[in-house]
């Protein structure tokens, strides 16, 4: 078992299912025998604000939040929020993001523009960047609402935890009627 603590950040917009995804990650790491800590902020942030969830696992984890500049993997649910979170990463970190843009209030009102070219800017700073059309792949699995699970599959591929624990965690955390689609979506993500 690795001595090192691995730092994962999940980021997006309130209501996107970030908390469930971070629960599945944590459950998986616990099943695989690691110490796990996770942290996020509820409350104001749920009303459509930015949400960041921190998940850390290893032999022994102290801080529940990822130390600034030490993020290993960024799991982005929305492109601009993914970009906003880059300063928390360490050089050479992996970024996996859904190709989804959710305009904030100021953009909806036509007062500001949603920035262009974010994907290129991310690649320039973090070459290990995977941009996923989560909705399209999820639709192939049977329901485009399982986009998060596709990305989770892609994230899982880059972590040193056996597939069986991921599937066990999915089974424990995903509602029974959605399990089949999510399992398929997860396995599609693992091929990315």
């Amino acid at each position: 078992m690795s001595e090192q603590v691995t730092n994962i950040l999940l980021v997006g917009v309130g209501g996107q299912g970030i908390l469930l995804a971070s629960e599945i990650l944590s459950e998986t790491f616990m099943l695989a025998g690691f110490d796990v800590k996770k942290s996020e902020i509820h409350g104001m942030s749920q009303r459509g604000g930015s949400v960041v969830s921190h998940v850390r696992y290893g032999r022994e984890v102290f801080s529940p939040i990822v130390p600034e500049g030490e993020g290993d993997i960024l799991f982005g649910f929305e492109l601009m929020e993914t970009y906003r979170c880059l300063p928390l990463l360490k050089p050479g970190a992996t970024v996996i993001a859904n190709d989804l843009r959710i305009p904030p209030a100021s953009v909806l009102m036509g007062k500001e523009r949603y920035p262009e070219g974010l994907a290129e800017l991310i690649t320039a700073r973090f070459p290990d960047f995977l941009l996923v059309d989560g909705q399209k792949l999820a639709a192939r699995a049977g329901n485009q609402r399982a986009a998060n699970t596709v990305l989770l599959g892609a994230v899982s591929k880059r972590l040193d935890v056996a597939e069986e624990y991921w599937l066990q965690a999915l089974e424990a955390m995903v509602p029974r009627k959605a399990l089949d689609v999510n399992r398929k979506a997860f396995l599609l993500g693992r091929e990315l």
């Binding site: 459509g48 880059l86 300063p87």
Partner: peptide, 21 residues
């Protein structure tokens, strides 16, 4: 010394404050 996160400089990102539903 740590590098504490700051807003990125290469592009201006609109904020995302909470909003009524």
């Amino acid at each position: 010394a740590p590098v504490l996160p700051a807003e990125p400089e290469d592009v201006s990102l609109p904020g995302r404050p909470p909003n009524m539903c």
